[in-house]
Design a protein around this nucleic acid. Structure first.
Lengths: 104, 104
DNA sequence: AAATAATATGTCATTATTGACATATTTACA
DNA sequence: TGTAAATATGTCAATAATGACATATTATTT
């Protein structure tokens, strides 16, 4: 994900802004980031719920433990594809995935 | 997306199976494909609804007309990231995106 | 505490995805 | 009909994402 956006100074001053404002993301970028964060959170939740280790999940989706760790750490090298594949492989239902889009 | 899955012969014979069965995708792969298809459909719907040409949408998200065409054509070179970015850039709301996950 | 299991972090060669471009085909409409 | 706008298809050099690996750090169990 690209985060190399130019600053957009917040007129209201030094109130503690949202993460999106602080990092100067456009609305669209902010939406995508929020979506990813939500899905990432769902991955970890689902994995733990099913008592899977990162190695277990990695095997299920033919990835590696380090990739799973990176997914859950929000590493910038991780694609939305991989996040969703992890979510599915972790046993999350369609309903779970859908809920991840709703969740804050 | 990889679709290089070995055949899984359907015991029940030549009933007309689901697309997923026919293409021999694992359940997980089938879920991801279904999700992509749903989102792709949502992109086109949203774009048309807002009366945007593919060129318009491409400019909004700093991509190219040919990429948008490929998104809507379900080209295998298109990532989930790009699809979702297109959906967001087309003006789809969080609610729209969410709905895309529900839709058939 | 020490051993073991789980998770995190860094690197890299291989593979996938990208925007841009040319050009073909289809659609709208004068 | 013809012509312009929109969409589709193919290609490719540049960039991004990948699994695998080594190894560090943190939790858990004995």
């Amino acid at each position: 994900m690209k985060t190399d956006k130019l600053a957009r100074i917040h007129v209201a001053g030094w109130q503690v802004g949202s993460t999106e404002d602080f990092l100067q993301l456009s609305d669209e970028e902010a939406q995508l980031v929020a979506l990813k964060l939500s899905l990432i959170s769902a991955v970890k939740k689902s994995r733990i719920k099913r008592k899977l280790s990162q190695i277990d999940l990695a095997q299920r989706m033919k990835s590696s433990q380090s990739r799973i760790a990176k997914i859950e750490a929000g590493d910038p090298s991780v694609s939305l594809d991989l996040i969703v594949r992890a979510l599915i492989a972790s046993g999350a239902t369609t309903r779970d995935i859908q809920a991840a889009f709703t969740a804050k």
